[in-house]
Write a protein that binds this DNA or RNA. Structure first.
Length: 471
DNA sequence: ATGTTC
C-alpha cells in the first residue's frame, strides 16, 4: 500500500505499476490521505482504463464513490478511449450557481427570514418533490436538447443569463431519442425542484475578499448578500445513468470483462453505445442547467417582491460531467474526453469559453461548503492546465458516509451549532440535517487553501451562510 | 445523488 511518493506538500504520486497505464496524482495533505485508502485504490483502478492519457488525478476533496472516486479527474483519448457513467456520477451535471444582489446585509438583517421563507414557498424541495408543471413531450425535448436556452425562451429568466452559464447552459450533441421513456416520465415533473441530500439553496454573506481587483470585476463586495443554488439533474440524470449502466452490462460484456471493479463499466467513446450515452448524459446536463435556471427565476421573483430589485446570474458551474476538450498531452494538442466527477473546470485567463466580462481574470469557480460552513468563489488559472486538465476541487468532501453520520451524530447538537452561528435553517427532512452535518464533511477552508496554494485556482471571496433551505 | 437497497 505504501506506493505513495511525496512530490511536494500537496502533491502525491502513485507511480504506474501492474494494471495502471499511467501514473496517478493526489492533491492533498497528509491528513487527507489518511482518510482515503479506498479512494486511492479507486484512482489506481481508473488509471488502468483503456485510452487514459497523461495521469489520473485526485482533488483535495477526494473520497470514495461509485467506481470512480468523487473528486477525481481522468481524460481519455477521443479515438481509442472510453466514456464511463461512473466517471460522471449518478447526478449528472450536479452543479452550483451563484446569484449576486446589490443588497447590503447590515441594512437588511431583519428581512433575511422573510426572503428565505418566500423562496421556500416558490421552490419545491425534498426527495421526490415535483413541480406544479408537467412538461409535454415537445417542450421536454426542447429542454433536454437546449438546456437553459430553452427555458429562458419559455419565460424563465433573461437572455443575458446565458452568457454566465458554463457552456452557455446548452451542451451538444444531446438528442431526446437517446433517453428512455422512464427517464422522460421521471424528468418531466421534477424540473424546477431542488431535491435532497447535499443539495441546498442558501442566502449568503460575502464575508471576506482575497483579491479586490478580481472581486470588483466579479461584482462582489464585502457585506453583500448573494444567493447560492446547489442542485443537479434530479431523478432524470439518475435514470439515465442507471439505464446506460444496464445497457453497457448487456451489450458490452466482452469489452468490460476484465475490469478491476465492476462499477468502472464503460463504453468505447467512439462506439454506438458510447455516443448514445454521451448524448443522453448531455441531455441530463442540459436538464440540470434548465433546473437551476427555473429556480433562479423564482428566486428573482422573491427578491423582487421583497426588495424591489433585480438580481444577476454571477456564474453557473457543473462539477459532474464528461466533456470533449482540447488539451496539451505531452506537447501535442489532443481531443480528449475529460471526466470530472466532483471536480470543477478552472480555465485560466484568455480562454474563449469564459464570459467576456471575466475573461481577463479567468473562469469563475464556485466551491460550495456543506451545511453551516463557508463557500468559496475562486478563479481558474493558467497553471491548472499543467496539473489536471484545468480542474480544481468541488466541495468539502465527505468524511462520514450518510449511514455512518446517522449512527454517530446527534440532531439536537447539529441544530444548536447552527443556531449559535445565527444560521436560519428550513428543512424538509430531519434525516438530511444529520446526514449533511458539518461533522460529516472535511474542512472546506482547508480545501480552498490547498487549491489556492497549489495554484490550480485562486481564492477571490469567502461566503458564509445566513439562511439555508435543505431537502 | 436517488420514487434513499438493481
Amino acid at each position: 500500500m505504501n506506493t505513495l511518493k511525496k512530490i511536494s506538500d500537496y502533491i502525491w504520486k502513485i507511480p504506474k505499476k501492474e494494471k495502471m497505464k499511467v501514473d496517478a496524482y493526489i492533491f492533498t495533505d497528509e491528513e487527507g490521505l489518511k482518510l482515503n485508502s479506498e479512494a486511492l485504490e479507486q484512482i489506481k483502478n481508473v488509471a488502468s482504463l483503456p485510452g487514459i492519457v497523461k495521469a489520473a488525478y485526485g482533488m483535495p476533496d477526494i473520497h470514495w464513490g461509485y467506481g470512480f472516486p468523487i473528486g477525481g479527474v481522468a481524460a481519455f483519448d477521443s479515438e481509442n478511449g472510453i466514456i464511463s457513467p461512473g466517471g460522471v456520477g449518478f447526478d449528472i451535471n450536479c452543479g452550483v450557481r451563484l446569484l449576486t444582489t446589490t443588497i447590503k446585509f447590515d441594512e437588511n438583517k431583519s428581512r433575511i427570514r422573510q426572503l428565505i421563507e418566500k423562496i421556500y414557498n416558490y421552490v419545491p424541495v425534498g426527495v421526490g418533490s415535483t413541480s406544479s408543471k408537467k412538461y409535454n413531450k415537445k417542450d421536454f425535448k426542447k429542454i433536454v436538447e437546449q438546456g437553459a436556452v430553452a427555458v429562458i425562451e419559455m419565460g424563465f429568466g433573461l437572455q443575458e443569463d446565458i452568457e454566465y452559464i458554463e457552456d452557455n447552459g446548452k451542451i451538444m450533441p444531446a438528442s431526446f431519442q437517446d433517453i428512455s421513456p422512464k427517464a422522460f416520465e421521471r424528468g418531466r415533473e421534477e424540473l424546477g425542484t431542488l431535491g435532497s441530500g447535499n443539495h441546498f439553496l442558501e442566502i449568503q454573506l460575502v464575508e471576506r475578499i482575497y483579491n479586490r481587483k478580481i472581486a470588483g470585476l466579479f461584482d462582489l463586495f464585502e457585506g453583500q448578500l448573494v444567493i447560492m443554488i446547489h442542485t443537479g439533474s434530479r431523478g432524470f440524470g439518475h435514470q439515465i445513468a442507471t439505464d446506460y449502466i444496464q445497457l453497457m452490462r448487456t451489450h458490452l460484456k466482452k469489452h468490460n470483462a476484465n475490469l478491476p471493479d465492476k462499477q468502472l463499466i464503460n463504453a468505447p467513446f467512439k462506439s454506438e453505445l458510447g455516443q448514445k450515452y454521451y448524448s443522453a448524459m448531455n441531455c441530463a446536463a442540459n436538464y440540470a442547467f434548465a433546473n437551476r435556471q427555473i429556480i433562479t427565476h423564482y428566486i428573482r421573483k422573491a427578491v423582487r417582491e421583497i426588495f424591489n430589485i433585480d438580481i444577476k446570474v454571477f456564474y453557473d458551474i457543473t462539477h459532474n460531467i464528461a466533456k470533449l476538450e482540447s488539451h496539451n498531452i505531452n506537447g501535442v494538442e489532443k481531443k480528449v474526453i475529460v471526466h470530472r466527477k466532483g471536480a470543477t473546470r478552472a480555465f485560466g485567463p484568455g480562454r474563449p469559453e469564459i464570459p467576456k466580462k471575466y475573461v481577463d481574470a479567468g473562469q469563475p469557480v464556485i466551491i460550495p461548503g456543506d451545511m453551516g460552513t463557508a463557500s468559496y468563489i475562486l478563479v481558474g488559472t493558467k497553471k491548472a492546465e499543467e496539473y489536471a486538465f484545468s480542474s480544481t476541487a468541488h466541495g468539502a468532501g465527505r468524511t462520514l458516509g450518510r449511514r455512518q453520520a446517522m449512527r454517530t451524530l446527534d440532531l439536537a447538537k447539529v441544530l444548536k451549532n447552527l443556531e449559535k452561528k445565527n444560521i436560519i435553517i428550513i428543512s424538509k427532512n430531519k434525516k438530511t440535517i444529520i446526514q449533511e452535518a458539518p461533522d460529516a464533511y472535511k474542512d472546506i477552508d482547508k480545501i480552498a487553501s490547498i487549491v489556492d496554494e497549489l495554484g490550480i485556482s485562486k481564492r477571490v471571496a469567502r461566503l458564509i451562510p445566513l439562511a439555508v433551505i435543505k431537502g
